[in-house]
Write a protein that binds this DNA or RNA. Sequence first.
DNA 1: CTTGACAGGTGTACGGCGTACACCTACCTT
DNA 2: AAGGTAGGTGTACGCCGTACACCTGTCAAG
Lengths: 234, 234
Amino acid sequence: MAEQAETLRRAPLSRDRVLRAAVALADEAGIESLSMRKLAQELGVVPMALYKHVSNKDELLDGMIDAVVGEIEPLVPDADWKRALRRRILSARQVLLRHPWAALAIESKLDATPAILDYLNAMVGALRDGGFSTDLAHHVMHAMGSRMMGFSQELFDTSRRAGRSGPADPAPPATFPAEAAARFPHLAAIAGAASHDDASVVGEGCDDQFEFEFALDLLLDGIDRLRAQGWSSR
Amino acid sequence: MAEQAETLRRAPLSRDRVLRAAVALADEAGIESLSMRKLAQELGVVPMALYKHVSNKDELLDGMIDAVVGEIEPLVPDADWKRALRRRILSARQVLLRHPWAALAIESKLDATPAILDYLNAMVGALRDGGFSTDLAHHVMHAMGSRMMGFSQELFDTSRRAGRSGPADPAPPATFPAEAAARFPHLAAIAGAASHDDASVVGEGCDDQFEFEFALDLLLDGIDRLRAQGWSSR
DNA sequence: CTTGACAGGTGTACGGCGTACACCTACCTT
DNA sequence: AAGGTAGGTGTACGCCGTACACCTGTCAAG
C-alpha cells in the first residue's frame, strides 16, 4: 500500500524523462559525474531500470546530444547565406553555453548523431542555395570545423568548468599569477590587453562573445571572398 | 635468485619510462583503454608502483601531453611571421597525427600544461615580432583556437579511431550508406565531391591534409589582411 | 661494521563504475 | 480466466583509481 503510493508518486519512466534528467544532471554537476547510478537515484529508481529506456551509457549520451542539438534554432530562410549561417551558428553557441559539457561530448563521438547530421546537412544546403559549388561547400565545412556547431574550442577555456564548486567560486585570478607572467611574457601581455567592452567581460579580461564573433566573421568574410571570385576546385 | 634476475631484467622505473610507455600504449590501444593497471602490466610491475613516479592518473595524462607537445618542432626564426607560424602549426599537426588521442586529451584539460603554455607563448611572440599589436595578437589567438595546436577538430573525424581493431580494418564504407544519403542529400553530395588529388586520399574521398591547409591559409590570409590594414582594437 | 633513513616496488582492500541476467509484478488482450 | 508483455528490481561480476601498510635493497653517518 505504501509501496503502491510510492509507485504512483513518481511519473513512470520514459526515454524522454531519462534524457531530460541526464541533461539536467550533466548541466549542474558536470558530465564527469554523470553515472547511470546517480542518474537512477535522481529519478528515484534502481540503476538497471534505465536500461529499459536506453541501451547503454553511450547511447544515453547520444540521446543527450540529440536533445541539445534539437534546441538550436532552425535555419531561417534568408537570401543572404552569410546572415543565415551566422544567425544559426550564434544560436548554436547559445545552446552550447547552456550545456557546457556538450561540446566535448560531441567531439568525443566517433560518429555524428542523426540530429547533428540534420544540422550540418541544412547548413550545407544553405551554402548551396547561396551559390557555392559542391566543392567549395565541402572545403568550407572543413574550414569551419566545429565552429559550425558553435564551439569556440579554445585551448584555454575558462568557461567550461562545469558545476560550480560552491555558491561562491573562490574568485578566479583576474590576472596572470605573476610567476607565470615571467615565464610566459607574451601570454601575460595578451591576457592583459583585453581592452574591448569591459562591461560584458566575465572574470578574466576577455569577452568570449566578442572573440567568437570575431573569429566567425573572419572566416565567413574569407569564405565570401573565395565564393565571390568564383572559386573552383583547387 | 630467480627473483633477483627478474628484478634486474627490467630497467628500474622512472617517470620518463612511465610516460613513454603510457604514450605508446595510448597510441596503439587508444586512450580509452589506457588504465593504470594495464600500464603497470606493460611495464612488468604492480599497479601501485606507478604512483611512486606520477601522483595520479590525471597527472600522468599531463605528463603524456607535455611529452607529445615536446615533439613539436620549435619555432624557426623567420622574418615572415606567416611562414613561421604555418610551419610550426603543420609540424604540430604531424605530431598529433602520430598521437591521435592527444587532441582530445588536451581539449579535455581545464588548465593548459606548461609545455602548451610555452608553445602558445612562443606563437604570440612570433606574432608580436611580425608587427601585431597586443590586441590583434590576442584576437588572433582566439580565432585560431585549437588550430593553433594543429587540430583539425572536425565534427566528422574519420582519422581518430585509435588502435586499429585488427590487422585488416573491415573496409570503411567509401561512400554514404545510401539510406543516409537520402536523408542528408547535401552531405552526401559533399562527400561525393572529393575531386582533389585522389592519390593522397585515404579511404573516404577526402584529403585531410589539403583540408587542413585550406582552412589554415584561409585564416592566415584573413589575419594578414587585418594586420596590413593596421587593425587596432575594435 | 653497524645502523637507520629512505627510495621504490608489493599486497591487500575499498568504493565506484557499467551492465548481464534472472526475477517479479501490474496490466492488457483474448 | 489465461497468458503475454512492458517495465521496475536484486544480485553479482569484472574493471577501475588509489589509500595504506608493508617489505627490501642501497647508501651515508656514526
